[in-house]
Amino acid sequence: MSQSFHRLLPEEAHSALVRIAALKSDGPTPVKMQAKGLTVSYSAKEAVKDVTIDVHENEVLALIGPSGCGKSTFLRVLNRMNDTIDGVTVKGSVTLDGQDIYAPNVDAVLVRRRVGMVFQRSNPFPKSIFENVAYGLRIAGIREGGLIAQRVERALRQAALWDEVKDRLTESGLSLSGGQQQRLCIARALAVEPEVLLMDEPASALDPIATAKVEDLVAELRSDLTIVIVTHNMQQAARVSQKTGFFYMGKLVEVGDTTTLFTRPKERATEDYITGRFG
């Protein structure tokens, strides 16, 4: 571990050390994203009601709750993916490193380059495996072939896919299996080095083995970035996250340390949900 730092640039090394130190100490890491009084509505219907929550750096925040409780809508607000849907209005504020991402002068495209997203259904482009991962770099204006190749390899390694695809990088991304496709999508999101990664039920369409791989990945990625993961699977939330938030009927009922929330929930609704009384 200590040896590898020699190869990093001083600035990067410094920030890495700071991050590692923060991970080791018990104190909370700085707030990466924050939602304050957030209300999201589709035309007249409110899908998310008055949600306030902090997402801390290098932390995995899991969002749980029954279908239609607003957790996915909330997730999509964090990188302005709701902008592409007609009739969505967002009230309240969402900040990234203290900057309001819904401020009028903010370009949603630039927000999405810093806050990446992985979807429930894997959606690789009908391009080669290599080009799938390189896509985000190319649209960001990176032209240098060597640099792109390095970044692609690193992203595929981070997504634990490199060994499986290194000999077939020119094959279509759609030729991979379902689990591999999802990891390809994770690699594609990681290639542009986002600071936050949003995952919308990333393993719900996968078999148990592929699910385990994605979960391991989430745990590893935490040292590099901040993750918000929406899941239907409470065991999954318990396994991968440090903080868990419980959404119900558009409201954030409770948020806290994952262990606490699952063992000693404060709210009755949370307890009912995690003990399987509804949902």
Binding site: N79, M81, T84, V109, L110, R112, R113, G116, M117, F119, R121, N123, P124, F125, P126, Y135, G136, I139, A140, C185, R188, A189, V192
Partner: peptide
Amino acid sequence: SYRTAATALGS
């Protein structure tokens, strides 16, 4: 889904 993926990558 291609459109969504591209948008989410900052296109």
